[in-house]
Design a protein around this nucleic acid. Sequence first.
RNA 1: CGGGGCGUAGCGCAGUCCGGUUAGCGUACCUGGUUUGGGACCAGGGGGUCGCAGGUUCGAAUCCUGCCGCCCCGACCA
Length: 492
Amino acid sequence: MAKGLPKRSEDYSLWYNELVKKADLAEHSSVRGCMVIKPYGFSIWEKMQAALDKMFKDTGHSNAYFPLFVPKNLFEAEEKNAEGFAKECAVVTHYRLKNDPDNKGKLIVDPDAKLEEELVVRPTSEAVIWSTYKNWIQSYRDLPLLINQWANVVRWEMRTRLFLRTAEFLWQEGHTAHATKNEAVDETKQMLEVYADFAEKHMALPVLKGVKSESERFAGALDTYCIEALMQDGKALQAGTSHFLGQNFAKAFDVKFAGKDGKEDFVWGTSWGVSTRLMGALIMAHSDDEGLVLPPKLAPIQVVIVPIFKGEEQLNAVSEVAHKLRKELLTDDISVKFDDRDTSSPGWKFAEYELKGVPVRVAIGPRDLENGTVEIARRDTKEKKVMPITEASGYIKQLMTDIQENIYSRALNFRTDNTTEVDTYEEFKKVLDTKAGFVMAHWDGTSETENRIKEETKATIRCIPLNFKEEAGKCIYSGNKSEGRVVFARAY
RNA sequence: CGGGGCGUAGCGCAGUCCGGUUAGCGUACCUGGUUUGGGACCAGGGGGUCGCAGGUUCGAAUCCUGCCGCCCCGACCA
């Protein structure tokens, strides 16, 4: 076990918190509920950003940037959206401080600098963006408008957790406008596919695609599509959402366009986002009691070379071999760190890089020099192999793919093992309390039933799966008729 | 917002009940030396307004009053 890292089986929550801190991903800041993302953590986020950004651009989107502040009157415009977020908004009321006349060296808010209209710190940007789109869109020729922004948003959450729920978080939010309903629906679904693809191919995280029930829907949307992932403790995590907004925001902000036929109509909208919460998903899905396990595609360092040496002479000899291997790997676009610091021991470095989730570790020592070998260890299985140096780079290159696939299939197997079909409410509760995970059950389609189940068991409908199977049955709660199973789980 | 906990060196903590040497331990850090195939060892060294503000006392990290902050569990939420 890594030094000081609690075991998952003993306290999953504590394990997670400690891992985030010990692996140098993030720490609590001096501001309640806000975190500092440290360089190592941020470089993982940057890799996620880069991959997602490319996927957005490949699907025709462009980046732009809109302001952090939303004047209150704009924020109010789409009533449901405003109502949904009102309880968690930070609000700017003043624009100046001044010296406290009664307390030298201290500042107070200058009462004379009160804003005529308060500014809401964006919890999401629909309001600012749609008020801008009004000016950008006149004709069908201006459509579709496909914009994404990378930004920070603030939601004054009562209880926060590093990455999973912080008062301020980083995300991207796509906001698109279309001439027809179908086109907007297609966009909504397309972006859900992009997210699912990203989660599975890059994060090695299998996700369920589905639609939210009415009560879980984004405030102001007609439909919310989502990807849902399963964490190692059996709890679900919403990893991304894509909303079909209908004409709600177009109507609220009066965004109309002239069609080919000369008729005016409101545009159709979508919005979609993923956040630094993905970091939480990544950490919780794959890591173990030794520390992080990162998929090669997102690992800031993919391979670390640790030299074992006594004295400068040996270090030089080992370095020569190490540099050569490093160069070979770099030409294959594999990022390599050669840690030749003589300030900590090899054993210390082994543990450190395991904690940080580096997928492959290469150790080279005098013994290897003699035999023309290296020792290669993979993080996901902890398997170690000694092999001729000549075969190392080919093997490592293959490992990049193997590890990526292995942790994906491990997560997929876990999900399969922890997805249970139940037919009675008794069974349902029993599964939740004994193994948790996704529970597939019949539901009568009403919010009343959904709410009661939530109150009694804390489980919510994660989604109505996109691959919904028509299957006549009875709702586990009400006994009323149901047309198929939906996905329940306790969630983060 | 309810419940619990914490605030003492960069980090992790003890000391607080029962006031009394120079506030201590682990780790990290600095110096020197020996080490290096799974978190090395020895010796020496630096680092503290004990969360803040008042009060009690000859004397406060310790007792009293007030305040502030953070964390965890729950309700709410991405």
